[in-house]
Simulated assay, not measured.
Amino acid sequence: MRQLRDLQIPLYQTQKIRLWRALQQLQELACKVTSSASVTIADTIPVNHEDGVLKGHGTSELDGEVVATLCGIVERVNKLVYVRALRARYKPEVGDVIVGRVTEVAPKRWRLEINFSQDAVLMLSSMNLPDGIQRQRTAVDELTMPSIFEENDVVCAEVHGFQHDGSLHLQARSQKYGKLERGQLLMVPPYLVKRRKQHFLSLVNRHKWYFHYLEKISIDLILGCNGFIWVGEHVEARDNMVEDQETKPEQQNSKLSGISMRLEEQERTYTPLETRQSICRIANAVRVLSSLGLGLNVEVIMETVELSISLNLDINEMLGAEFCVQTAEREVERRSLLSKKKG
């Protein structure tokens, strides 16, 4: 199978057999659920020629049979049959939550790498300023742009739309968007991240393994539709108007308030060791699932983390061959149980 050939982890012969068997079972289960099949180049696509099938992208006719001309998933829309490529670049849609890296600070805009055919544009007018006041942007705001985002900063934003010149424009008009710090940026194939209602996930006491392992740890997980995934320390998004009212000091306590604010800033710049270990463990779970070509969602990621904890594995041991095979076998069990419940 393609996932087995692309896997960069060295495997013993028995591990190869176990992994091949698990991936084969996963493909069979997927075909039962979606009635779609994965194909490689020159594979025959079964069709009903009596219906006047239309050959779409990724297909061709050879000796009276419809064959695939690229690797991907067979899709059918009425009489049209085509192959959706798995290794293609990200195709943006309006409203997509994406994570990107700043490549340039240009006049009145930032350019971001988002795994698209060209860099996306985030206009200064399309984001909230640090003061939170809704107003027209001035020349002073443009001069302070590098203090908001600078090159190589990781930023979360939303796809706003395409312009006439073909450029992709982003927006960050909510408190949940903006600069991401104290975490890891992971890059996976975009097809592994399905579009969902919720792409911002705060892992705060929502999984049972927190109660015996990470009782006081909170992590933010952002699944970007473009295949960029952020795992970092949890940050509370607050309304600026509420924050201004709460922190507005009285005249006689202004000095004391300033000192306490400086102390809070020092505390916020430090990420505890336990939190960093949790970030690395979750990030390694994403890496393992991505190497196996498995779809990414919070349930699968956290079950992989819990599996590593139940096996008493160190964080670095999660990237070993045996845990990779065990993850695939665990996914087979999970999907088999789901199919039995639905049946």
Rank of each mutant, 00 (worst) to 15 (best):
E331L: 09
N316A: 06
H234V: 03
V97T: 15
K216Y: 00
W110K: 05
L54Y: 10
V67C: 05
K108I: 04
Q198I: 14
E113C: 14
T304S: 13
A237E: 06
H160V: 07
V332C: 06
E333Y: 07
K255N: 09
L143R: 15
D96C: 06
C280P: 01
A321M: 01
V121K: 10
L19I: 08
E236V: 12
M318H: 04
R135I: 15
P189D: 12
L214M: 10
R173G: 14
N205K: 15
I9H: 10
I259V: 09
A328L: 01
V298D: 11
Y213I: 00
E267V: 07
C225P: 00
A172N: 05
M302L: 15
D153P: 00
K91G: 01
L201H: 15
M145A: 12
Q134E: 15
R330L: 11
V204H: 10
R111H: 13
E233F: 03
R87T: 10
L311F: 05
G178D: 04
V288R: 05
N128D: 08
Q171W: 00
N284Y: 08
L337P: 00
S218G: 06
S218V: 02
Q134P: 02
Y213C: 04
L214G: 07
Q198D: 13
N253A: 12
E250V: 09
G52R: 07
V305N: 10
A328F: 03
D239E: 12
Y270K: 14
I114M: 10
V97W: 05
V94G: 02
R182S: 11
L311N: 10
Y177Q: 15
N284G: 03
T304K: 05
K79G: 03
V121P: 03
A139P: 01
L186F: 01
R87A: 07
S147P: 00
K248F: 10
D141H: 03
Q326K: 09
A157L: 01
E322A: 07
R335D: 00
N226D: 09
L122G: 08
T247E: 14
E274T: 11
V235T: 03
S117Y: 08
F211Y: 12
H160C: 11
G161S: 02
I279D: 10
D314G: 15
V47A: 09
V74P: 03
P46H: 03
L338P: 12
R182M: 08
I282T: 04
G72Q: 03
V188M: 04
P272S: 11
R262N: 13
C71V: 12
V300F: 06
E215L: 06
D51W: 08
V67N: 06
M1W: 02
Q8A: 14
Q171I: 01
